[in-house]
Design a protein around this nucleic acid. Structure first.
Length: 578
RNA sequence: GGCCCCGUAGCUCAGUUGGAUAGAGCAACGGACUUCUAAUCCGUGGGUCGCACGUUCGAAUCGUGCCGGGGUCGCCA
């Protein structure tokens, strides 16, 4: 809204300025709002930046919201706005029912695929990051008017599942009193053992009947049982982080329904599939490499480094082929924007799938791939190795149990998705400034604490009823202290920054803004300790108190709404009253 | 070796998509509780934004080349 009002004022020169970005508030002495508008427009208009800035300055001076306009440096416009302007921003904020929403989505259907961990056991710490990221991004998109479907792709076909099935069968046979040789690629982990035990129990009366089944039938039975029980574990893990999906899609289903054939067929008709041989990997010696002709997708046409195989040597479809079928399926369901959240180890896979989506949709749909960088866990500052081989895997569940779902959700979003993240177990649960979630919750609790006071209740009851402000005085006009205005600015910028965060697909900006808001509020709070004039509640001045309560209400609502986007419930009270 | 991501204070990281004198937290030091919750706040010190060119009024941000870290490189998913 700052943005718009400024644009409206500056459209006086003969050029639209929609595409020109303004920079917002800065806390130093260069005005409250600074704009590089003149610098940007000057070259287009063929004017010197400073002369353009000066003409703009003359127009802007007439604006009643603007107190001072300065031209500085090469042609910056530094504006100082009237307190009334900020009061109006605050009022506008209080007038909206749901503070953090916008309408940029236009009901566009977005398919957001995240987690999609292989159903091979419990989820670990790395999965948690992608899970939280996807979940919060979905929240943000929904709040912005997108029609979001949260999706999970179950990799229940392929070799890994075959290993799982073989391992389960081995456990099963052992339970039945037999001593079969351990299969190759035996899958360690208690989950498989439990899985076999469950199955044994179900077949209690005639456990050996399963072993007597013909191998294809037996495999089918085992497959369903294994994937079901692994998926149950995953769903529980996700549930303890309060993460949900709307749709679970099965890879196996794609194989069964001939969906893969159909999609490859589509690509073949477009002339993008051929039988060929790939060159050997460059710069890497591999004696086992043999040139083998296979079915290839022309990924190079879409910017990939090379064409990519669709069939394995054993004539079954590759994972890529199945994924093409899957994304064809997404497109068929009417999605034009697809977003996939992957671990950074899949970066080499991005170009080929984007190519496939482009080909399948004739360039009508786009696939955005967001790669999650690694998570490192520390305990008391020391790194905990997360390695599957050492069996030292910290599971998602352990992490949540030792901290909390709220802590994991917040901490996982304190960094950009493509930057590595260090998660410190102590910090996540500490009730200290350096735990940002606590810091934000504390600010919210403090807001609630003030609003709970009898005096506050009394004044709120008065202002809620008739309009008690005397006519002629603008509302909220008593909020003039530096720290009060500073807090209003932070609050007023939220809608703008929220929108930017959505467009950038960057949930971490929400945690950052929450921390900034809490900081500004805590700072204002402490002012009241130095200077009692700045305390929120003053029984001798109900006007000022009412205005300050409005500011606190706005702060409280923004904090609550921001936390809600993160899937975290704001706390009204933090201290135990024992 | 090819490709992708990253490199910002001693440590962990932001930096509003090209703006002015680059910001937080932790760690160090010094202050503020007759309270609307001091679980907080205020202040001080701390920088060749990996290096070098280039693009322009202007670069942590964009381009190219190096250096360093991580990931990945047909028949794993």
């Amino acid at each position: 809204m700052l943005y718009e009002s400024l644009c409206a004022v500056t459209t006086t020169p003969p050029l639209s300025c929609e595409s020109i970005a303004l920079s917002l508030t800065d806390k130093n002495q260069q005005g409250e709002i600074t704009s590089n508008l003149a610098l940007q427009l000057a070259s287009k208009l063929g004017l010197a930046p400073r002369t353009l800035a000066t003409t703009l300055q003359k127009h802007l001076q007439d604006n009643p919201h603007i107190r001072t306009v300065d031209v500085a440096g090469p042609g910056f416009l530094n504006l100082t706005l009237t307190p009334t302007f900020w009061h109006q921003q605050l009022q506008a904020l209080l007038a909206v029912k749901t503070p953090l929403t916008c309408a940029i989505g236009n009901n566009e259907r977005v398919n957001l695929e995240y987690v999609s961990a292989n159903p091979t056991g419990a989820m670990h710490v790395g999965h948690a990051r992608g899970a939280v990221f996807g979940d919060v991004l979905a929240n943000m998109l929904q709040a912005s008017g997108y029609d979001v479907t949260r999706e999970y792709y179950i990799n229940d076909a392929g070799e890994q599942i075959n290993h799982l099935i073989a391992s389960t069968l081995w456990h099963y046979q052992t339970l039945a009193g037999r001593t079969p040789p351990k299969p190759e690629n035996f899958y360690p982990g208690d989950e498989i053992k439990h899985c076999a035990q469950d199955l044994y129990r179900q077949h209690g009366k005639a456990p050996l009947a399963l072993l007597d089944q013909a191998p294809p039938t037996r495999t089918q039975t085992l497959r369903r049982h294994v994937t079901d029980s692994m998926l149950a574990i995953i769903r529980q893990d996700l549930a303890c982080l309060r993460i949900r999906h709307d749709v679970f899609s099965s890879e196996e289903e794609l194989h069964r329904s001939q969906a893969i054939e159909a999609s490859i067929d589509t690509l073949t008709k477009k002339g993008l599939v051929y039988e060929g041989t790939l060159p050997p990997p460059k710069g890497k010696e591999d004696e086992t490499w043999r040139p083998t002709p296979t079915l290839l997708f022309k990924a190079q046409q879409f910017g990939d480094e090379q064409d990519r195989p669709l069939k394995k040597d054993n004539a079954t479809w590759t994972y890529f082929a199945a994924d093409i079928g899957y994304h064809q399926n997404k497109l068929a369901r009417g999605f034009t924007t697809l977003m996939n959240i992957w671990g950074a180890d899949h970066s080499g896979y991005r170009a080929r799938l984007q190519g496939a989506v482009q080909a399948l949709s004739n360039g009508q749909a786009q696939l955005k791939v967001l790669l999650m960088a690694m998570v490192r866990l520390t305990v008391e500052g020391k790194h905990v190795k997360i390695s599957k081989r050492s069996g030292n895997v910290i599971t998602l569940r352990t992490l949540v149990e030792e901290t909390s779902a709220d802590a994991v959700r917040f901490m996982m979003l304190t960094r950009r998705h493509d930057a590595p993240l260090v998660f410190d177990m102590q910090t996540a649960i500490q009730e200290k400034r350096e735990n940002p979630l606590f810091y934000v919750q504390y600010a919210h609790a403090r807001c609630c604490s003030v609003l709970r006071q009898p005096l506050a209740q009394k004044i709120l009851a008065q202002t809620d009823a008739p309009k008690s402000t005397p006519p002629g005085t603008p509302p909220l006009s008593s909020l003039t202290a530096e720290h009060e205005i500073a807090l209003i600015k932070v609050l007023a910028c939220w809608p703008y920054f929220f929108e930017k965060a959505v467009l950038a697909l960057e949930p971490h900006r929400i945690t950052y803004l929450l921390t900034m808001t809490a900081e500004s509020f805590h700072s204002l709070w402490s002012q009241g300790k130095q200077n009692h004039q700045l305390r929120f509640l003053d029984e001798n001045d109900s006007e000022r108190t009412a205005d300050r309560l409005a500011l606190i209400q706005a702060t409280q609502r923004i904090l609550k709404a921001g936390l809600a986007l993160l899937g975290i419930t704001a706390m009204d009270e933090l201290r135990d009253n024992d």
